[in-house]
Amino acid sequence: MIFAHGFGCDQNMWRFVAPEFEDDFKVVLFDHVGAGGSDLSAYDKSKYSSLHGYADDLVEIGRDLNLEDAVFVGHSVSAMIGLLASLKAPGLFGRMVLVGPSPRYIDDGEYVGGFTEKQIAELLEFLEDNHMGWSAAMAPSIMGNPDRPELGEELTNSFCRTDPEIAKAFARVTFTSDNRNDLSKVTIPTLILQCSEDIIASETVGKFVRSQIPGSEIVFLEATGHCPNLSAPAEVVSAIRAYV
């Protein structure tokens, strides 16, 4: 069972959910390149200029660990990354759980993604305003040793701290992605977990995903916001458990 985090933070997003499955599954957690404790020197601008670069990494992880028919649980943008990986490597995943998925964030004609292009441009600019205490000088000690408690205060914000340039690039890739045409290609059983009052991935978008992925199911959570894995882990755990 492999858990993938979305845009913003790192694998700690699953800290209240993943441990619940450790008795029944081999649980795999990872940080996308550029996030959390990943090796920043592996960040390749052109590779990660589309979600396919991230999907390729996911396939690589799967191959390396000899995963077959694994359960993929992806939050936010990683829902689409996992979906792309499932198309690239048939047999890798047996089931997918997509938490707060959105195949496209920007409105397009009849399609309501929830954001305008201008708002996304503002977001990219806004990211400049919050460095989360990032400084190039501190980066090596923080990024390489996320678990070293002696770093004490420097760990503040570390779960969601990223090189500002990479954060911006990931935001751009995430919020300008369009994977609507990939949804119908999915052949494996897929569960959508839809939060209420989620401004990032609205109920309309969740229902759109459900209608496009053949045979998929959708569960509406009572949890509000975009991160039920943190705000309502018990509800998420029971929804996943009921499906796998």
Binding site: G6, S76, Q119, E122, F126, N130, T156, N157, F175, S231
Partner: peptide, 25 residues
């Protein structure tokens, strides 16, 4: 504003939940 909302949902709210506080946002 919208940028702040996205940022709040993707960074601030998770961080608040994980470390119990946030400073200087």
């Amino acid at each position: 504003n919208m940028a702040g909302r996205i940022y709040y949902e993707t960074h601030i709210a998770p961080l608040l939940r994980m470390q119990g506080f946030f400073n200087e946002f």
